[in-house]
């Protein structure tokens, strides 16, 4: 079984993003970029499936600018076999991403697609579910555990009330949550090896997908700042303030 893993290049999770002065977006020039942390977890899971003999090939795909090659090379260094870059400039919305991925699936015919549950830039949490709709495949979202069966899979999902386990037919779309695994670091020899692994470049138009955004971003602004607080000297002072000043207890 082939596993397809879409990955996204995003502003690194440790960066405190700044809104541009003209409110057209956030500053991404000279900012550290990394693979979306949830996507690292899906790459790791795919590699583990291969190591366990349950997957035959791990193909990673990214949709974005030429610089997304760095993200793909990172996934190859972790242990993916092959990469596809679908070049597209500007913001590509989840619906367009899902349409392109449907095109990739038609060519690659994977038995499983593993995605991060959300990208930490636009925080949409949509692509996996949309891909499920477009392919007609079942979806297992926010998963913290998967167990492959014969023609089906059991997935444990992190939901508001706790955990839920569902069974879905294969092929299926899975979106991963934080506790599925702990991604490995790529070793230096594997980083060198990754440079020789195949990376195909395509264009969104190759899949007949129009990536023009459907939603118009009118502006991107700073969130309201919180007023500065105070440091209290003791627990009793804290309780006194909460009772008499903030009046919340």
């Amino acid at each position: 079984m082939k596993v397809l893993v879409p990955v996204k290049r995003v502003v690194d999770y440790n960066v405190k993003v700044r809104v541009k002065a003209d409110e057209s977006g956030v500053e991404t020039a000279n900012v550290k970029m990394s693979m979306n942390p949830f996507d690292e977890i899906s790459v790791e899971e795919a590699i583990r499936l291969k190591e366990a003999g349950k997957a035959t090939e791990v193909v990673v795909v990214s949709i974005g600018t030429a610089q997304s090659q760095d993200t793909l090379r990172n996934a190859l260094a972790m242990g993916a076999d092959r990469a596809i870059l679908v070049e597209a400039d500007g913001e590509v919305e989840p619906l367009a991403v899902a349409k392109i991925l449907k095109g990739v699936i038609a060519e690659e015919e994977p038995g499983l697609v593993l995605l991060g549950k959300q990208a930490i830039d636009d925080d949409s949490n949509q692509t996996a579910q949309m891909l499920g709709a477009l392919t007609g495949w079942p979806q297992a979202t926010f998963v913290s555990k998967i167990e492959l069966g014969d023609g089906s899979m059991e997935a444990t999902r992190e939901v508001d009330g706790g955990l839920e386990t569902i069974k879905v037919n294969m092929p299926a779309v899975v979106s991963v949550d934080l506790r599925l695994n702990e991604p490995r670091y790529a070793s230096l020899p594997n980083i060198m090896k990754a440079k020789k692994k195949p990376l195909d470049t395509k264009a969104a138009a190759d899949y007949g997908v129009d990536v023009t955004p459907r939603l118009k971003t009118l502006k991107v602004s700073e969130p309201p700042a919180r007023a500065a607080g105070i440091i209290v000297g003791s627990v009793s002072e804290l309780v006194e303030k909460l009772k008499n000043e903030a009046k919340v207890i």
């Binding site: 502003v11 956030v26 925080d123 991107v220």
Partner: peptide, 9 residues
Amino acid sequence: IYAGNAIAT
């Protein structure tokens, strides 16, 4: 967006 560090309209 960006963990609430920016608000998109």
